[in-house]
Write a protein that binds this DNA or RNA. Structure first.
Length: 245
DNA sequence: CGGCAGATTATCT
DNA sequence: GATAATCTGCCGC
């Protein structure tokens, strides 16, 4: 029984050690417990609507923390609590793709709030953004890290790593785990197949603000937000910054 | 654990 | 031709 269950898990067919079996059983139990958590039941009728995204980008980035991001694809539900975001502002933000106006690449950023903007970076990775503010403005929130909740096994297969903390702790990893590419740009985040719903309630004390990561222009603006003490945030941090206290 | 090289392509100079 | 909102593996301590 256990052996056949294990055989269905990737990389666990054939002979494996008792320690490996216990590890897989442990992650399966953790998955079941996570889905039973009343805080993270699926409530698609509570999906955040465009008016949530049609606000100041920093505020949207901050308010997205603790929310549950849900994607339904190929009959599978993938979801996770958003634990780290970055704001890319419409004005005076040289790091934003929209800084020099609309191009073919960044066109989705000028859509109304509540639309997806997915772009390719370094030729190999994709990054997921939610467009913010009014149509034509050109701003978005980058989703940098997620705490996996539903479809964790599916994410393990897509990512090729086992530890839950490493499935979605970075923008490129999220795109792989959730199966998102540039083909998903212009889609809505307010529909049944892709939406964000209420999750954990957070206070100001739960949120850390720092400069953004991986950029060279406007690198000092405090526009990165993450949940304090979350083991699921991307490990990278701006040069010279200490971990949160 | 920290640092660094390499992968690989759309976009703009 | 240079650059980029990144990830992984390999190296040395």
């Amino acid at each position: 029984m256990v052996a056949s269950l294990l055989a269905e898990r990737e990389g666990m067919s054939g002979e494996c050690t008792d320690e490996q079996r216990m590890g897989v059983l442990k992650t399966m139990m953790e998955d079941c417990m996570a889905i039973d958590d009343p805080l993270i039941k699926l409530h698609p009728w509570l999906a955040l609507q465009p008016d949530f995204y049609n606000r100041a980008t920093q505020q949207v980035a901050r308010d997205l923390l603790g929310k549950l991001m849900v994607r339904c694809v190929d009959g599978v539900v993938l979801s996770g609590i958003i634990v780290e975001t970055e704001a890319y502002l419409p004005e005076g933000d040289a790091a934003s793709h929209a800084y020099r106006g609309a191009t073919q690449r960044n066109a989705a950023m000028f859509e109304p709030g509540g639309v997806l903007y997915v772009y390719m970076i370094y030729g190999i990775h994709h990054c997921l953004n939610f467009v913010t503010e009014e149509c034509g403005v050109g701003s978005a929130v980058l989703i940098r890290a997620v705490e996996p909740v539903h479809g964790i096994d599916q994410m393990r297969m897509r990512r090729g790593v086992q530890k839950a903390e490493q499935l979605c702790n970075g923008p490129g990893k999220i795109a792989i785990a959730f199966g998102l590419t540039t083909a998903n740009s212009f889609a809505t985040v307010c529909g049944p197949d892709m939406y964000v719903q209420p999750g954990k309630d957070l206070g100001e004390a739960d949120i850390i603000t720092t400069p953004r990561i991986g950029i060279t222009k406007a690198a000092n603006l405090p526009l990165r937000f993450y949940i304090k003490n979350s083991p699921f945030v991307s490990k990278a941090k701006p040069a010279g910054e200490k971990p949160e206290q």
